[in-house]
Design a protein around this nucleic acid. Sequence first.
DNA 1: CCATTATCTTTACAGTGTAAAGTTATTCTT
DNA 2: AAGAATAACTTTACACTGTAAAGATAATGG
Lengths: 205, 205
Amino acid sequence: MTDNYHHGDLKNALIQAGLTILSQEGIQSLSLRKVAKYVGVSHAAPYAHFADKQALVAAIAAEGYKRLYEQVSAAAQANADDPRTQLIETAWAYVQFALYSPDHFKVTFSGVVEHEHDYPDYLEQAKKNFTLMVKVVTACQAYQLLPQGDTELLVIGIWSGIHGLIHLLLGNQLPGAVLTRYSTREMLLAQLNQLLISHDGDSHP
Amino acid sequence: MTDNYHHGDLKNALIQAGLTILSQEGIQSLSLRKVAKYVGVSHAAPYAHFADKQALVAAIAAEGYKRLYEQVSAAAQANADDPRTQLIETAWAYVQFALYSPDHFKVTFSGVVEHEHDYPDYLEQAKKNFTLMVKVVTACQAYQLLPQGDTELLVIGIWSGIHGLIHLLLGNQLPGAVLTRYSTREMLLAQLNQLLISHDGDSHP
DNA sequence: CCATTATCTTTACAGTGTAAAGTTATTCTT
DNA sequence: AAGAATAACTTTACACTGTAAAGATAATGG
């Protein structure tokens, strides 16, 4: 066990090391050789568990989707009683994950350049998240908080809005003037309020 | 002129070579040495014009914003008579640019990792585009096609929606089932119609 | 016309992904 | 339990990357 041979759980150790590097040094510093060194293993050792760098990145991306799901589903369960608040807080959880772990978020959503199809783990986590969004939106539709019609199309519309806002924020694309005028949460709420149907008598602090 | 010394317009030639590589081989193949070889110059020659790779990427990104502006402003001018159509067609031009030149789009919006501030050309083009969007949205507000209120905040909301849709499309994040059911344009229209105020008597084919 | 300077080449180095062959420890078979 | 097969890891190697430093060349400005 003290020797380097047969680490035991090298695959996961490499993923964890990748996450650490990602959060400490950023996406530019994420290399196969560095994660290997980090775990204390030769630079070719990862190839016993990952076909190539893309495969490791895909695993890290799948982990990103997994953590995103944990955050979002926690927000969903904490607000199961009010569909409107549930939508807002799940969206907010999504944004927060992205802002707290920007590089992990980037890897998750644009790190696996293509061929996501080759990584079933990734696809599974992606599907799980989408299903959760469908559920939240469906509840809102049932309460007349969102327009009727194809739910999946509506999910894409809402998801696009949140996702795009994050990308513009992370990419520093928004004019500084706007950033000083509004908080991130205000921008998200403005976004969602464009879609949510306002009912008299509602209270939304 | 036949010799390699004093190429004449090496800086632009390198950018053009970068664009060619980007469209032909993708973002992974974009390297300083390759653009240099492509132009027929030594691998260190680019350093006379660009401080580092980031600087070249920033120039390519600025060019991306420039082309995006050309496409979008053309659509704006072609539909100057009808604000609603103008919004839709400018948005569609935006989407089309992204789908026709996905790698150039990616470089433009997530290639300059950070420090965009160091590249005034890039910032200028970015601002130009934002101003155009503000103009289009302002027209829609004047015609009661979009809700009143802070125009820039509204622009961010709309921009986020379009931008996010593109990212999800380019990142292959949308479930295949939805993609077979709706065209890209239908998804964009669904997105915009969530925001646009419907007036009786309007015709929107 | 000569010196300066911008532009480009050559050489060099550390870091990257990955292939191939060798080494070690585990597991499987009998 | 002993040996064979195999999975996990190391070593060595190579092509490619960004970039620094020093040298060569051609245009320019006094």
